[in-house]
């Protein structure tokens, strides 16, 4: 007993038990169960029988599922690009010498910390077809003569949910990139300026290369969570109008929980995995830390 308590391996195992049990039971097991369910025709309250690839074949031929895939890709690509550009710009701005810097940084992060479902309700009200304040302002300015149907028209709805997602995501990207910017030594910019580099050249040749590793990590997270987004869509449109904003996650929910088709819903959820892996691998191999950036030689 005495010997055991001094053994690192035994103690390590004991210390790992609570976290290990929780994660194996509620993360690893359901992950496997989800893959299994995807190959069955399970319904709520009924264990399904093995049906092989039937669910996937059905989804391939299902126009709504294909539309959901398109919507998800559109939503992820457009929102991620906008979040990155605006987030980087905001980070660069906040990195300048500004009054009330700490306060500004705290305020900027607010959209990120407030529950998304609740801020989405505010957007729902902002996008209201009859009482939207955005339409009110635009009519007063004389830019439009009829109130905009933000969530009633397929393409309007797609852009509206992207806008709400960007609003929520920009602060996270800006603040994490700001942390990266603050680690870049000002002497590098001084050296570049002495060599006659324009601000644009300084950004392109000093800031961006040094920021690449952190951009890779932040954007991986951003893409991951945008691709699997659920609550914003659920609150704003529930996938409508005409399924124009259904993402794979919201469609999986609709089919599996209110619809009761656990097998089909699981198949939809599992179908997201290859895309997520591709995004992770892309950022890992495409943007990973290059050795020369740390003074080594490029391998």
């Amino acid at each position: 007993m005495e010997r055991l308590l001094h053994s690192r391996n035994f103690l390590g195992l004991v210390f790992m038990v609570p976290a290990g049990v929780l994660l194996l039971l509620f993360l690893t097991y359901p992950l496997g169960l989800g893959v299994w369910l995807g190959f069955t025709d399970a319904k709520v309250g009924r264990t399904g029988a093995w049906v092989g690839l039937e669910n996937y074949q059905f989804l391939l031929g299902d126009s709504v599922a294909r539309l959901a895939l398109f919507n998800t890709l559109f939503y992820t690509v457009v929102a991620s690009v906008l979040k990155f550009v605006l987030g980087l710009w905001l980070a660069l701005l906040l990195n300048k010498h500004l009054p009330f810097k700490a306060f500004l940084r705290a305020v900027v992060l607010l959209p990120f910390i407030v529950p998304t479902a609740l801020s989405a309700i505010a957007f729902w009200w902002l996008y209201d077809a009859q009482f939207s304040v955005l339409s009110w302002v635009l009519t007063r300015l004389g830019w439009i003569d009829r109130y905009i149907d933000f969530l009633g028209d397929p393409w309007n709805a797609r852009w509206s949910v992207v806008a709400a997602n960007v609003w929520r995501g920009v602060p996270f990207i800006a603040i994490t990139l700001l942390a990266g910017l603050q680690t870049i030594s000002p002497s590098l910019y001084e050296a570049a300026a002495i060599d006659g580099a324009t601000p644009w050249q300084q950004f392109w040749n000093v800031t961006l290369p040094l920021l690449t590793p952190i951009i890779a990590v932040v954007m991986t997270f951003s893409v991951l969570f945008t691709f699997t987004d659920f609550q914003l869509i659920y609150v704003l449109t529930r996938g409508g109008p005409l399924n124009a904003t259904h993402l794979m996650a919201t469609l999986a929910f609709q089919r599996a929980i209110p619809g009761g088709a656990l097998g089909e819903g699981s198949a939809l959820a599992v179908a997201m995995v290859p895309f997520l892996l591709a995004a992770i691998l892309f950022s890992y191999f495409g943007l990973q830390r290059r050795k020369w950036q740390q003074g080594g030689t490029d391998a």
Partner: peptide, 29 residues
């Protein structure tokens, strides 16, 4: 302990699993 590195990596990977993939099997459980 032996396997600590791998365990750390597994924890990081667990961090990347989004809830929208897990909620259906979890609901069944």
């Amino acid at each position: 302990f032996r396997g600590a590195r791998e365990t750390g990596l597994a924890i990081f990977l667990a961090y990347l699993v989004p809830p929208s993939i897990l909620f259906i099997p979890l609901a069944a459980m």
